[in-house]
Nucleic acid binder design. Structure first.
Lengths: 348, 348
DNA sequence: TTGTAGGCGTTATCAA
DNA sequence: TTGATAACGCCTACAA
């Protein structure tokens, strides 16, 4: 049960633990012959440095704690997590991921776990409760926020949602659409103004591009307080919004949905109504998560999910090694329209 | 930077470290007054037991290592992971998850990481390389395999795919379908006979139920060597199989796809061909992952993903605490047909 | 009811 | 080029 220790390796190789350590780390002077002898014992015994003991001694765990909002139903954060993992591993770090499931208390429990393991940095993707950010900050380790920040006291990586949303709108307008509906999260619903920028930008681009052309019409705008499918056994907000518009006999030739999940519901409603995409109605989503699995392949605004994770991990590790403490900064990545098959010329 | 230690708490409270330990663990005799004094210092200083030091001392990390096949594009294993996490946390364990992305070398790296952290048990969901199972076994800690086992030397949790697939077929037959197409992974393609049972059972139920009624027709069967969408920017095998059948003018009124991802591609092809689901063609998937996001809501065979994870974690923890070593065993969970909106009466 | 002290497996300093 | 040894923070006999 007990695994091989440096001491037993030293003993079997007839050297001191210091020498074994030098061999394992590949630094310091070790005679080639001695080195070989040690290496032989290491491979015979399957000796592997005990990270726990090493961390204790070094007062550095080489673990990055990653608090994840959730992985289901929206797989966006799964991509972020993959980015974090890929980068941390390339730098010799281990990622400890904790799923919050949108629950502030769970977020707190995750932090407690991280701190008890003395993680070297914490990444929030995304923070649920601002108090928890303050709590993390007290540990005096780097804290990074991804996508929706709730505090300006840490480094944070955000996305320029406006540019991508504007691209999407211009794409639709260029196709001749004049009646474009919108469904998304209502700006101001999030209890934190920093985190709200996402919805402000997405809806803002929609609003700006239409108002300027006198095409804005509140009757075909659905602003809810969430934009995921709450229950995976039923249709979500996207479905219900479109169904209502059909019931009200609203006219529209395109729908801009502020997430792929909402867009999935939009497609369900259109399908059920017997109309076709994009011949009758064009649909654009946001995120590029479900987009390639829907019928038709969904045109969407891609968020740089993997890159968000990588950048977060990179900043975390930079801060771990930094000599001096720099001021928290905001980094902004770009979103980008991906044209697939759910958008076409407006019906005349 | 340095966090509070048991020693400094003891010092500030004017007691010994042993007393602080007794208070922290809530065992042993401690005078109420002393206890309060210690607790006060603990909350003032934010002292938190150092899991690293504790693990070293106890020779138990309280970490379960979970090797994940992948989280994307198929979110099935995300659900398994949630099950593992939920159970381990309820038992005071921490889960260290490592994404293998289908790469045996990455699987090996994950194992190395786990072993260096002296995890108390390892869960494979699912193992990619049998050699890695042997490797894990050498560490003399419990090893559990989920869904597709590749070795009978460990506990393993499998799913009765046959029953669910049979339910699906009977559902279609009852709706009057006589021309039912199949798309899935080819039995025998997996390089391991143990792991192959999934495809054998799914296709077996299809085959058995049709042959018995003389409805089996190889021309509408597509057996590939993978059943996920390889590239998220394009359609996958499900799409191409159905498209080919249309080109060949094959007749079929229903498609049974061996995964929701394949079913998504099937829907894309049908949609592109201008037909409707379920009026023209019925579709059934497998997994219950993407099913609720597709249009129409997909009828599918649900795998007990969360339960697979929970069970794996439970067995792992039971083995950790077991006095004697029991023989590896196979546990079998059930799959279940979920009827939604993609299946209807056969066109006459 | 409380304290003392050794040791878990490493690392790193200092001597040799 | 190598070795002895003192920590790292915690737990737990064993003493008191």
């Amino acid at each position: 049960m007990k695994s091989t220790t440096i001491k037993s390796v030293a003993h079997q190789a007839g050297v001191s633990t210091a020498t074994v350590a030098r061999v394992m780390h590949g630094n310091g002077y070790v005679a080639e012959e001695t080195r070989q002898r040690v290496l032989d014992v290491v491979s015979e015994t399957g000796y592997r440095i005990n990270s726990i003991a090493r961390s204790l001694k070094r007062n550095r765990s080489n673990i990055i704690g990653h608090l994840l909002q959730s992985m289901l139903p929206n797989p966006f954060f799964v991509k972020v997590a993959r980015g974090v993992e890929a980068y941390t591993e390339s730098q010799g770090y281990t990622t400890l991921t904790y799923n919050v499931q949108g629950d502030p208390a769970a977020e707190r429990r995750g932090l407690e776990t991280f701190l008890s393991w003395r993680v070297d940095a914490i990444i929030f993707s995304t923070a649920r409760d601002q108090k928890n950010i303050e709590f993390a900050l007290k540990a005096n380790i780097p804290v990074i926020q991804v996508e929706r920040p709730r505090s300006s006291k840490t480094d944070r990586i955000t996305v320029n949602n406006y540019a991508g949303a504007l691209e999407a709108m211009e794409h639709l307008l260029k196709l001749g659409h004049k009646r474009i509906a919108y469904i998304g999260q209502k700006p101001g619903v999030v209890d934190n103004k920093l985190a709200d920028y996402v919805d402000i930008e997405r809806f803002g681009a929609y609003q700006d591009s239409l108002k300027k052309r006198n095409l804005f019409d509140e009757r075909i705008i659905a602003l809810g307080k969430s934009y995921t499918l709450g229950d995976t056994s039923a249709q979500g907000d996207g479905y219900h919004a479109v169904k209502r518009w059909f019931d009200e006999r609203q006219k529209f030739t395109a729908v801009f949905a502020a997430s792929d999940i909402l867009a999935a519901g939009v497609l369900q409603a259109i399908h059920e109504h017997g109309l076709r995409v994009p011949q009758d109605i064009s649909v654009i989503g946001f995120d590029d998560t479900f987009a390639p699995f829907l019928a038709p392949l969904l045109t969407t605004v891609r968020l740089p999910a993997h890159e968000l994770g990588e950048t977060a991990a990179r900043l975390a590790i930079e801060r771990i090694h930094a000599k001096e403490v720099k001021k928290p900064k905001e980094y902004r990545l770009e979103s980008q329209l991906i044209v697939r098959k759910s958008t076409g010329k407006a019906r005349s």
